[in-house]
């Protein structure tokens, strides 16, 4: 075995970059129903339960970008206010798993 290299922690963006995608940028498949409701959501679990970091807190609001969505459905289930309108991407779009 060769000498150990220091292990670098890859950011989620770096990790998502290795995946294959076919992104439907014109028709996001997930929407926040009422963005105003997120202001009053104390823990905003979507921002840390989503495995792809699709939800980012900016100030007191939540910004959603679906390009790197892994289509797991966690956000829909975990949103305490049932404030997420969730669908699968249309016609074969989205992530394309090949090795999992």
């Amino acid at each position: 075995m060769t000498a150990q290299q220091p292990v670098k922690f890859m950011t989620i963006e770096e990790r998502l970059n290795v995946n294959a995608w076919d992104v439907d940028i014109y028709r996001p498949h997930i929407k926040i129903k009422d963005p105003d409701k997120c202001r009053y959501c104390e823990k905003k679990p979507c921002t840390y339960m989503c495995p792809a970091k699709c939800y980012v807190q900016q100030g007191n609001i939540v910004v959603l970008s679906t390009e790197a969505c892994l289509e797991c459905g966690t956000c829909r289930v975990v949103c305490p206010y049932e404030n997420i309108d969730w669908n699968y991407p249309r016609s074969g779009m989205g992530v394309w798993f090949r090795f999992s």
């Binding site: 150990q4 292990v7 890859m10 990790r15 998502l16 290795v18 459905g73 966690t74 798993f97 090795f99």
Partner: peptide
Amino acid sequence: LRTHPYIARLVAGASLQEYSAHL
């Protein structure tokens, strides 16, 4: 978990092929 010292030495040098998630 991958970068935990106990695991890191087992997978050192292996490159990420896919990152996935599911319920």
